[in-house]
Amino acid sequence: MPASTAAHLLSRQSHRPDRARVAFLDDLGLDRARAHELCGSARRTLAVQIAGRLTGPVLWIRPAWEPGRLNPDGMLALADPSRFLFVTPKRAEDVLWSAEEALRAGAVPLVVADLPGPPGLTAIRRLHLAAETGAERGTAPLGLVLTPGKGGAPGVESRWSFVARHGGDGREAWQLERRRARTEPEKSWLVRRGDRGLTLDAAPVTG
Rank of each mutant, 00 (worst) to 15 (best):
A140P: 15
M75C: 09
R196L: 09
L142I: 07
E37A: 03
R21L: 11
G117D: 11
H128R: 11
F162D: 01
G68W: 07
K90V: 06
R32K: 07
H166K: 06
R178S: 12
W97E: 09
T183K: 14
V156D: 08
A33I: 12
P109M: 09
H15W: 14
L142N: 01
S161M: 01
G197M: 04
E101C: 13
P81A: 03
A79G: 10
V108Y: 07
G168P: 05
T133D: 12
E101M: 15
T133A: 15
A203V: 13
S188Q: 11
W60I: 02
A164T: 03
E172L: 14
P72F: 03
P57S: 14
T139C: 06
G143L: 07
R125V: 08
H128N: 08
D201G: 13
A3P: 01
W160M: 03
F86Q: 12
P185D: 05
V22M: 04
N71P: 00
I124M: 11
D169I: 09
L110S: 04
A77G: 13
V163N: 06
T45Y: 01
T45D: 11
G68R: 04
W97T: 09
L129K: 08
T183F: 14
R91T: 10
G68Y: 08
P116S: 10
A131H: 06
L121M: 14
H8D: 12
G52N: 08
A35P: 09
D114S: 02
L142W: 05
R44W: 02
G134W: 11
E136S: 11
V108L: 14
W97K: 09
P119I: 07
S4W: 15
T183E: 15
T183Q: 15
R196G: 05
R165E: 14
D114P: 02
G194H: 10
H15A: 15
D26V: 03
A113S: 08
L76G: 02
M75R: 00
A113W: 00
A64Q: 10
A202Y: 06
G120R: 13
P109H: 06
I124W: 05
S158M: 06
G68T: 08
A23I: 03
R19Q: 15
V58Y: 06
A35E: 06
L10K: 02
A105H: 05
A130N: 02
A107D: 13
A130P: 01
A92K: 10
L10F: 09
E100F: 01
D195M: 13
E172K: 12
D18K: 06
F162E: 03
G149T: 00
A92I: 03
V111P: 02
E157W: 12
P154Y: 13
E132F: 05
G155E: 11
A51W: 03
A203F: 11
D73E: 14
A181F: 12
R62K: 13
L54D: 06
A131N: 10
F24D: 03
R62L: 00
R32Y: 01
V108C: 10
R53S: 14
